[in-house]
């Protein structure tokens, strides 16, 4: 099966948002991926995702949208190496995923910060668990730089319970970025954050990954967030999750600054994706009965 077509960024006036060179390199390749989990009590297993074929290129920002329970999280867990494929395959940088690795990092919806660790200690954790060949001085400098990047200087010794939701997630983001992974996985990172903080954080994230060239796979329930951030929006159908449509988003970047929401293309895209998601959401509602 051929990989799904790759998306291209729209013409960008800002030089740091230049279009990718021709012959983009696929870093995440999923072929006919089928995966799910066992329901122990019922001697059954549930297929969360069926026949997912998707290729994500280096530096691409791919957003997954779909109804609750459609298996979006299972897909990024498969990329992260937290779950193994039942059928098909998933490759990162040309090698089949057998487990987590330092080339991938994740931001979690519920932050997943260790409550007994300070902000600094949480952000330092990836270096404790992975051998990245950095000296202590380099690690210290890196941790300081990322604390500064997420604007938590002064809060190094605070514990997560002392922080607001937005601040907690900035710790989660710094922890994911600090080891400078090729691939950033984000599972509804801004879902629990208030709308204004959320928009600001979207803008900063867009700017940051455009600068570093990191590949991002991002889950959201918000169509606006999907269009604001994604080069491509992958709409996933309800149980078992299958790719319903891949929508290219060719809007100028940085979208946060260009106020893309006022463009007619934005409304068209929004309308198109909403229609796709609505059908699935209705099925979810019926399925829930």
């Amino acid at each position: 099966m051929s990989p799904v077509e790759t998306g291209r960024r729209g013409a960008a006036p800002d030089p740091s948002f230049a279009p990718e060179p021709a012959g983009a390199v696929p870093v995440i390749v999923s072929r006919d991926l089928t995966v799910g989990y066992k329901l122990h009590r019922e001697r059954k297993r549930l297929t969360a995702l069926r026949d997912i074929s998707l290729s994500v290129n280096a530096g691409e920002f791919v957003v997954l949208v779909g109804p609750s329970g459609c298996g979006k999280t299972t897909f990024i867990n498969a990329i992260a190496g937290l779950v193994q494929p039942w059928e098909g395959s998933i490759e990162v940088n040309g090698r089949p995923v057998t487990g987590p690795g330092p080339d991938r990092a994740m931001v979690f919806q519920d932050y997943a910060l260790m409550p007994w660790r300070t902000v600094e200690s949480n952000i330092r954790m990836p270096f404790e668990l992975q051998k990245l060949g950095l000296s202590k001085q380099e690690i210290d400098a890196r941790v300081r730089r990322y604390i500064d990047l997420v604007d938590l200087t002064g809060f190094e010794k605070s514990f997560p319970y002392e922080l607001s939701g937005g601040m907690k997630q900035r710790v989660g983001i710094a922890r994911a970025l600090v080891s400078e992974p090729d691939i950033l996985l984000a599972d509804e990172p801004f879902a629990a954050i208030d709308a204004m903080t959320r928009e600001a954080m979207q803008g900063e994230l867009e700017r940051f990954v455009a600068k570093t060239g990191q590949t991002v796979v991002f889950i959201t329930h918000s169509i606006d967030e999907a269009i604001t951030l994604g080069d491509r929006v992958v709409v996933i159908s309800y149980r078992p999750g299958q790719i319903k449509e891949v929508v290219d988003v060719n809007l100028p970047r940085p979208r946060f600054d260009y106020d893309v929401k006022s463009l007619p293309e934005y409304s068209e895209l929004r309308d198109h994706i909403w229609r796709l998601v609505k059908d699935e959401a209705l099925q979810t509602a019926h399925g829930a009965k």
């Binding site: 730089r145 500064d148 990047l149 604007d151 002064g154 900035r170 600001a200 900063e204």
Partner: peptide
């Protein structure tokens, strides 16, 4: 637009003092 090369930030403004 914050300049990321010398310490831009992903945040809302916060003041430790």
């Amino acid at each position: 637009t914050p300049d990321l090369s010398d310490g831009g930030s992903i945040s809302e403004a916060t003041d430790p003092n």
